[in-house]
């Protein structure tokens, strides 16, 4: 069964903004699925429709086979949601935040105590559990927020921009936690991001979304391969009559698309994907033909290239109301702390 199945989702806000415009996708169980897109693309809107915070204008959403529109209660219990804004109550301690969350999911005292300790230890917050959340750093707040989303052991976790505004170390740590959740608890994870590396590093599959539409959806590798694949630049120490045999052997390797040679002895090899895995093989092959390799260089298309290819280069500023502005400022202050 698919963990999440979205069909032709449309969301038009009151002002007439078409934030999500006919989006369809399905997420398998135990998959880490990513939405990659610029600000205002409709990522948060999509997530909020799925977790039941917004009423879709059109389309159907099924979570573990249950139609969210018809039976919201069942879906709510099997999902965890950490919003883009870190929704932690500053005036409560970390433990109190977690405890309340557990109570709101109708867990018993013992369950909260046991799982609470488990998630706080997992996220490295156990020692600070009795401190007020206002003394936490931005990264700790984000971790606490994700921990709260995990207290009821959801089968599907929704993370809206989990590493927005965090420093590199914290970001890598959160990636680790996310991977662990999948490995150890078999959780399905849906995350949104506008960081290329994040989608590339973490996701099994990525959907590129812009202006409410999915422009491409595939494995990160496949998306990159679609742009032309990896390019390996190869130079040999010395060449002789054995070279043509070597080159045709290279061309016969699986995944090799094209090979071109310059008169001054540089060879370009286009590979569908994972050019890094082909390099040892190339070197072995060359040695087997009695030819020494001088240098190898690999250039891979990044998800950056893919992203820009699909969304264009220009930066779009979304219109925001004054209240949203105030909110954004508060949240930024919290994140920077």
């Amino acid at each position: 069964m698919e963990a999440v199945c979205v069909e032709n989702l449309v969301k038009i806000y009151h002002g007439g903004i078409r934030a999500v415009d006919g989006v369809s996708f399905a997420i398998d169980e135990r998959e880490i699925f990513g939405f990659l897109g610029p600000n205002g693309a409709g990522k948060s809107t999509t997530i909020k429709c799925i977790v039941g915070l917004l009423r879709p204008t059109n389309g159907t959403i099924r979570i573990l086979g249950v139609d969210v529109g018809k039976d919201p209660g069942v879906a709510k219990r099997s999902i965890g949601y950490a919003a883009q804004e870190t929704a932690v109550d500053d005036h409560l301690t970390g433990w109190e935040n977690l405890y309340l969350q557990g109570r709101f999911y109708h867990l018993s005292q013992e369950e909260i105590r046991k799982r609470g300790e488990e998630v706080l230890r997992l996220f490295g917050l156990w020692e600070r559990r009795n401190d007020l959340a206002q003394t936490y750093s931005g990264g700790m707040l984000k971790r606490l927020d994700i921990a709260c989303a995990l207290i009821h052991r959801p089968r599907i976790l929704f993370l809206d921009e989990p590493t927005l505004g965090l420093d590199v170390q914290t970001r890598t740590a959160i990636w680790e936690y996310i991977r662990k959740l999948r490995e150890e608890h078999g959780m399905t994870i849906f995350l949104t991001t506008h960081y290329m590396e994040e989608a590339d590093e973490l996701c099994d599959r990525v959907a590129i979304i812009d202006q409410g539409k999915i422009l491409a959806l595939d494995k990160p590798g496949a998306l990159k391969a679609a742009l032309g694949g990896d390019l390996i630049t190869l130079k040999f120490v010395s060449t002789d009559e054995r070279l043509p045999a070597l080159l045709s052997a290279i061309q016969a390797l699986p995944g090799v698309r094209n090979l071109r040679s310059s008169p001054d002895g540089i060879h370009w090899i286009w590979v569908e994907q994972r050019g890094d895995r082909l390099i040892p093989e190339l070197v072995q092959l060359a040695l087997a033909h009695g030819i020494q390799v001088d240098s190898v260089r690999l250039k891979r298309p990044t998800l950056d290239d893919v992203y820009l290819h699909y969304t264009g280069r220009e930066i779009r500023e979304a219109e925001v109301s004054r209240e949203e502005h105030v909110r954004a400022r508060i949240l930024q202050r919290r994140v920077r702390r």
Binding site: G52, L53, Y81, A83, E85, A87, Q101, F104
Partner: peptide, 10 residues
């Protein structure tokens, strides 16, 4: 602070 959203999602 987004807490209302959290309550509504619970």
């Amino acid at each position: 602070i987004g807490y209302l959203e959290k309550l509504l999602a619970a």
